[in-house]
Structure formats: structure tokens, C-alpha cells
């Protein structure tokens, strides 16, 4: 395993109490593999990513338990100095909104070149040349001239390409992309996603793709981890999951996607709202919204069961995964 997150717990101390954002997340990514982490806002997918990267705001955030094994080494136990060397070089991140994630007062050439001057000790001139190469690589037209421009002078799609170039700069083993296409137009989304997938294949990087867009996932991901209330509720290879979800929440998500063959009919939405992280429901956190709810769901927290009826490596945190699988 390239990256393995084990039993990660993150909480935030707020004025209203303790928000349990991540409650025992386990997931793993192999080299060259794409793991899609799927979930609604507040499901803990971004917080998990930030904890892996070591860019969580602490305080108010606090990692209370767990391990983040990267190439077998627990990142959470490393000194900040050693962690910093890994960040950006071996483990990179792409953010959602490139306009605010790029520094408005520095040229993109400087921001890209910084990776090489800081991590590789290159001269500013060499770094600039590498920055232009990178911009070429992510297919920004007129890279040489545009390296001297500022982020606001680029279109949304081009800016996200710059973010990708920045993450790619030192050819990291793993990239975490936090909703990389959410802020973009639909047509541009596809281009950016294709570029990311292409680069990932070429460099055999691991990719953690955080998203709430099921359409994006189907095309590029190898595996999917579905998160709810800070837990993984289902984990499966992408095709198995689409074919037959083993958790009522996944089923709800899949049913809520508009489909051409169901045109004119009412969309199935999941009833209710995601739980407040300050007061996570007892038992299975999904039980107040679950159409299959039984008494045991209100009291017993379901572990991530092995879905044994499938040959693939699957898991579901539902007491009734068998029933769910059968539909």
C-alpha cells in the first residue's frame, strides 16, 4: 500500500461543543490507483485529506487517534520538519477553488518555480524554465509568456491546470485532489478531469479524488469509498458498487442522480438532512434517514462488514448489507 489511513479520528473544538468530523476512517491507495472518496458536505472527506497532508488547522482541529501510513511510515508521528519535506514533493494536493488557492500577488511562474527552488535548490532561472515546461505539460497555450502573468489573468480551467501543474511539479507518489472540478463549467470539468487522469496514468501516481459528483467518479476511479458522518459506510471497486450497492446510503446517492431513461419522473432524494457533527445519531448514523431501518440500527454501530458474496474486496457498514445487495 502506498497510503493507508487507519482508524483516523479528528475532532474540532467549537463554541457549541466538540464536532466529531472524522470517526474512525480506514482507506488505502495503491500506486497507480485512483480512489474516489464520495460524500456530502460535512461527511469528513476533506478533513481526512487535510489530516493526511498535515494542513489541518490545529487548533481548533485535533487528531485524537489513528495512523496515516505513507510508504509504510506514520506521517502523524513525524517531526514537522520531516513532514514538510514530504509535503509537496511526495504527497501533493489540488484544491477546489484555484482562484483563491493561488496567491493573487505572485506570478504563476513564481508560484510554480517555488517548488523547484525550495525542494530542489534550483536557481530561479532554472526553476522558471521548469515552470514553463510544466505549464506546457498541462497544455496551457503560450506558456512562456503566460508564466509572467498573475492568477486572475487566467480562466477558471487554466487556473485549475496550474494547480495540477503545481501538484505534479516534483512527480509525487500520491496526489489528493479535493473536488478539483467543482468550481468549473461542465465542459471544462471533463477536460481537466481527463488531463488529471492522463497524468496519473503516465506517472503511475496514486490519486485520492474527493468529490460529491457521481458522474466524475464512474469514469476515472478504480475504487470508491463512500463517507457519511465521518465514517466510511461502503468501500468497493467502482463497477461492483454501481452494479449493486451494499449500503442504503449508497443506494440513495445512486438513485438521486438524474438519468435520461427516467426522464419526467420524480427524482429520488434521500430524505432528511445530514447529521450535525456535534450530535451524531446513536447506532448507525444513517438510521434516521434510512428506508430499511430496524431496531438494532438505533443501538448498534455497524462495523465495516466484509461483503463476502462478492469476489472483490468490498466492505459495507450496514447490518443488513445482504438485503441491500439483493435490492
Amino acid at each position: 500500500m502506498l497510503l493507508e489511513v487507519r482508524d483516523l479520528h479528528v475532532e474540532f473544538h467549537t463554541r457549541d461543543g466538540v464536532a466529531h468530523a472524522v470517526n474512525g476512517v480506514d482507506y488505502g491507495v495503491e500506486a497507480g490507483e485512483t480512489l474516489a472518496v464520495l460524500g456530502e458536505s460535512g461527511s469528513g472527506k476533506s478533513v481526512t485529506a487535510q489530516a493526511i497532508m498535515g494542513i489541518l488547522d490545529m487548533p481548533p482541529g485535533r487528531i485524537t487517534a489513528g495512523e496515516v501510513l505513507f510508504k509504510g511510515q506514520d506521517l502523524l508521528k513525524l517531526k514537522e520538519k520531516d513532514r514538510r519535506r514530504i509535503r509537496g514533493a511526495e504527497l501533493a494536493m489540488i484544491f477546489q477553488d484555484a482562484l483563491s488557492a493561488l496567491n493573487p500577488v505572485l506570478t504563476v511562474g513564481d508560484q510554480l518555480g517555488e517548488m523547484f527552488t525550495v525542494h530542489r535548490g534550483m536557481s530561479r532561472r532554472d526553476a522558471r524554465a521548469r515552470a514553463v515546461e510544466l505549464m506546457d505539460r498541462v497544455r496551457i497555450p503560450g506558456a512562456k509568456e503566460r508564466a509572467g502573468q498573475y492568477p486572475h489573468q487566467f480562466s477558471g480551467g487554466m487556473r485549475q491546470r496550474i494547480m495540477i501543474a503545481m501538484a505534479m511539479a516534483l512527480e509525487p507518489a500520491l496526489i489528493i485532489a479535493d473536488e478539483p472540478t467543482t468550481a468549473l463549467d461542465v465542459t471544462v470539468q471533463a477536460q481537466v478531469m481527463d488531463l488529471l487522469a492522463e497524468l496519473q496514468r503516465e506517472y503511475r501516481m496514486g490519486l485520492v479524488l474527493i468529490t460529491h459528483d457521481l458522474g466524475v467518479v464512474a469514469d476515472v476511479a478504480d475504487r470508491i469509498a463512500v463517507m457519511y458522518a465521518g465514517r466510511i459506510v461502503e468501500s468497493a471497486p467502482v463497477h461492483d458498487l454501481y452494479k449493486a450497492p451494499a449500503h442504503p446510503y449508497t443506494r440513495g446517492l445512486l438513485n438521486s442522480v438524474p438519468r435520461l431513461d427516467r426522464k419526467g419522473r420524480e427524482l429520488d432524494a434521500i430524505k432528511g438532512l445530514p447529521p450535525s457533527l456535534l450530535h451524531i445519531p446513536s447506532g448507525c448514523p444513517f438510521h434516521p434517514r434510512c428506508p430499511m431501518v430496524q431496531d438494532v440500527c438505533r443501538t448498534d454501530v455497524p462495523p465495516l462488514y466484509d461483503v463476502t458474496e462478492s469476489d472483490a474486496d468490498r466492505g459495507s457498514a450496514c447490518h443488513f448489507w445482504r438485503e441491500c445487495l439483493r435490492g
Binding site: M53, I55, D57, R84, R85, I86, R87, G88, A89, A92, M93, F95, D97, S100, A101, L102, N103, P104, V105, L106, E114, M115, V118, H119, M166
Partner: peptide, 26 residues
Amino acid sequence: RADYVRTAIAKGLPRRRVVVRHLLRN
């Protein structure tokens, strides 16, 4: 708490550089 400061940290820049070049400049 700006996003670009978080990016600078995620790039693995030393704290001093994050503060002076990215945070202070803005």
C-alpha cells in the same frame, strides 16, 4: 486562514517563507 496560505503550506514551503513571501506580502 486564506486558501493561498494553505496552498503554500501544502507545497511544503518552510514556515518562514510561507509567512514572509505569501502571508506578509498580501
